[in-house]
Amino acid sequence: MSKHIPLILKLIALGGLLAFPMADSPFYTELVAKTVLFGIFAMSLDLLVGFTGLVSLGHAAYFGIAAYTVALMTPKYEAASFWTTFPSAIGISAAAALVVGIFVLRTKGIYFIMVTLAFAQMVFYLFHDTALGGGSDGIYLNLKPDTTLFGGKPFDLDNPFHLYYLIIATLVVVYLFLKLLLRSPFGKVLVGIKSNEHRMKSMGYRTFGYKLAAFSIAGGLAGAAGYLYAVLFGFVTPELMSWHQSGNVLLMVILGGMGNLVGALLGALAFVAMQEVFSTWTKHWQLVMGSVIVLSVLFLPGGLSAVPRRLKAALTGGGEK
């Protein structure tokens, strides 16, 4: 019985998400949608940070590239097709990550962090300083993508509820995709690389290819989140790929507990919630949030996802593990 508890909790959480629009609060529905898409973004980074041991500080680049893809594919007075823009956005961000990965994955540790940051900054300035994507002002997405397929419209992205459910569906698909991936021989190799890459090589694994594939997949999934962001808010700016954004998503992963997909979602939830709550208290909310993050890293190693295990250990009187 007790081993089913995590599954039951996950289903309850999913039920809550599905029922949420009934609360009939457009503001909060949008906020939840935003949290969920940041959760997708955080899970994609966790594949690198928590499961492969690759700490990327440039992950927002792929989020942003996908957001710009839909903005640039949409004509000014006409809606683009959802069925072409969504796969394109994911594909282009995955391809961008593949190309960047070929270079950055030749480095390790602190150098990897700096080089991923450097590439992300290059992408940021490409959009910020050139006319390619409207410069520093970004682009408005006047019309949300059109979902017409074979003459029918299965759902309508102009309807906030439909868009909300698309985001939830994407969450479920990405979560299940990553679960399967991590269970597969491929996923086992990634976790092995995180634990001891040297030994993986000496056992005959060419780890570079595996890392490159993971980097590209993570880029594509970040792209799914970035696409949904652009569609949800109707505009894109270079800020989406700034290093602050890369830092934020890394904080979500750390807050939630690295190497745990639900943790990444909890981290995104905690992050967005803190942002909302603290910013109503004070204009210096980032100071408060920074303190909370420092405290949680100090006193909650393993992040939010480790809380149940620690509580259980405390309750049963067992020592901390």
Binding site: L181, S184, P185, F186, K188, G192, M203, G204, Y205, A213
Partner: peptide
């Protein structure tokens, strides 16, 4: 791999002989 089970340590070694990385939906 200190955090893996003994079995998983050795299974990973064995898996290296027949790498089918593209089978990302198969259970290891």
């Amino acid at each position: 791999f200190p955090k893996f089970s003994v079995f998983e340590n050795v299974r990973l070694a064995a898996q290296s002989r027949n790498q089918r990385a593209w089978k990302i939906f198969a259970d290891a």
